[in-house]
Write a protein that binds this DNA or RNA. Sequence first.
DNA 1: ACGATGATGAAC
DNA 2: TTCATCATCGTA
Length: 181
Amino acid sequence: MMGFWYIVRMNTELPQSFFQRPVLEVAPDLLGKYLVRTHDGAEKAYLITDVEAYDGETDLACHASKGRTPRTEVMYGEAGYWYVYLIYGLHNIVNIVTGDTDYPAAVMVRGVGAIDGPGRVTKALGINRDLNTLPAKKETGLWIEDRGYMLTKDAVVTSPRIGVDYAGEWAQKPWRFQLVD
DNA sequence: ACGATGATGAAC
DNA sequence: TTCATCATCGTA
């Protein structure tokens, strides 16, 4: 009787511990993971291709550079929660909170699959501020999965973050992480 | 190049 | 209560 090898690929929801690390570690690690959304009856998964890290009160590009405010409070909370805000009165932007409680940091999702642009991502996935402060768990309808894919080291490129020219030297830090085309 | 469009935080 | 600003996008 012949034996057979099986390879089983698991789709595992990222645990909170994944996010409880410095944002500059979490951000590149999110590339190659999947943003999964249940929206009007269907479940869809999108490869995360483009993210940016926002790191603490000293980072002048980070909303928490103004300290604790009603809006930034969620960034001071536990890792693994969504921070969704409206920009320019028009576009929702989605971030995942990272790191220790009381240390405000988050990763913005700038692109998934062929969808390029943080406002386009939220529009395509039906994400708005109803998700703000909710956890990245299947029960909220928006979570992140490891689907078993590995990246080679040269798959990731870094560059300065977009749209934060007001942040002086912080604007130049290479805290945008993308999968190469 | 520019207008849309409303929340946010700070000043008064 | 007013004001400037804003982690953007579509159209021109």
